[in-house]
Deep mutational scan, measured.
Amino acid sequence: YCPACDKSFKTEKAMKNHEKSKKHR
């Protein structure tokens, strides 16, 4: 789950990829 974006991810890999993504924050 990403509190900054208020989005939840089913896998930890998806969240790690999201955190590295430029769309994050």
Rank of each mutant, 00 (worst) to 15 (best):
Y1G: 12
Y1C: 02
Y1Q: 15
Y1W: 00
Y1K: 10
Y1A: 10
Y1H: 04
Y1S: 15
Y1E: 14
Y1N: 15
C2Y: 05
C2D: 01
C2P: 01
C2V: 01
C2A: 00
C2F: 06
C2E: 00
C2H: 08
P3E: 15
P3G: 15
P3W: 10
P3T: 14
P3D: 03
P3I: 15
P3V: 14
P3R: 15
P3A: 13
P3C: 14
A4S: 14
A4W: 01
A4T: 15
A4G: 14
A4D: 14
A4V: 13
A4K: 14
A4Y: 12
A4F: 13
A4Q: 11
C5F: 02
C5R: 01
C5T: 02
C5A: 05
C5D: 03
C5W: 00
C5Y: 02
C5G: 03
C5P: 01
C5M: 00
C5S: 04
C5H: 02
D6P: 00
D6G: 07
D6E: 15
D6R: 09
D6I: 03
D6F: 00
D6K: 15
D6Y: 00
K7P: 01
K7N: 06
K7E: 02
K7D: 01
K7Q: 11
K7W: 00
K7H: 08
K7M: 03
K7F: 00
S8R: 07
S8N: 10
S8Q: 11
S8M: 01
S8E: 11
S8G: 07
S8F: 01
S8T: 09
S8W: 00
S8A: 12
F9E: 08
F9R: 02
F9W: 06
F9A: 05
F9K: 06
F9C: 04
F9G: 07
F9M: 03
F9L: 09
F9V: 09
K10R: 03
K10E: 14
K10M: 01
K10L: 00
K10Q: 02
K10A: 08
K10S: 06
K10W: 00
K10I: 00
T11S: 13
T11V: 00
T11H: 00
T11C: 01
T11L: 01
T11Y: 00
T11G: 09
T11N: 01
T11R: 04
T11M: 02
T11D: 04
T11K: 04
T11I: 00
E12W: 08
E12H: 06
E12C: 04
E12T: 13
E12D: 12
E12Q: 14
E12L: 07
K13E: 13
K13M: 13
K13A: 11
K13V: 13
K13Y: 06
K13S: 14
K13R: 09
A14H: 04
A14V: 04
A14G: 11
A14T: 11
A14R: 09
A14L: 07
A14S: 13
A14I: 08
A14M: 07
M15L: 12
M15R: 06
M15Q: 09
M15K: 04
M15N: 07
M15I: 04
M15P: 03
M15S: 07
K16G: 09
K16E: 12
K16Y: 02
K16W: 02
K16R: 09
K16I: 04
K16P: 03
K16D: 02
K16N: 08
K16Q: 12
K16V: 03
K16H: 05
K16M: 02
K16L: 08
N17C: 12
N17Y: 09
N17H: 13
N17A: 12
N17I: 10
N17Q: 15
N17E: 08
N17M: 13
N17V: 10
N17L: 11
N17F: 12
N17K: 11
N17D: 13
N17G: 11
H18T: 07
H18R: 04
H18D: 05
H18G: 05
H18S: 11
H18K: 04
E19R: 12
E19I: 12
E19C: 11
E19P: 06
E19S: 10
E19L: 12
E19Q: 13
K20C: 10
K20H: 13
K20D: 09
K20M: 10
K20N: 06
K20L: 09
K20I: 09
K20Q: 05
K20R: 10
S21G: 09
S21C: 05
S21W: 03
S21P: 12
S21I: 03
S21F: 02
S21N: 08
S21V: 05
S21D: 06
S21Q: 07
S21M: 13
K22W: 01
K22T: 07
K22S: 11
K22R: 09
K22M: 04
K22Y: 08
K22C: 04
K22V: 06
K22Q: 07
K22H: 06
K23L: 06
K23H: 09
K23S: 09
K23G: 12
K23F: 04
K23W: 12
K23D: 13
K23Y: 04
H24Q: 12
H24R: 01
H24D: 05
H24S: 07
H24N: 11
H24V: 08
H24E: 10
R25M: 11
R25V: 14
R25I: 08
R25A: 15
R25H: 06
R25T: 14
R25Y: 02
R25D: 15
R25C: 14
R25S: 12
R25N: 13
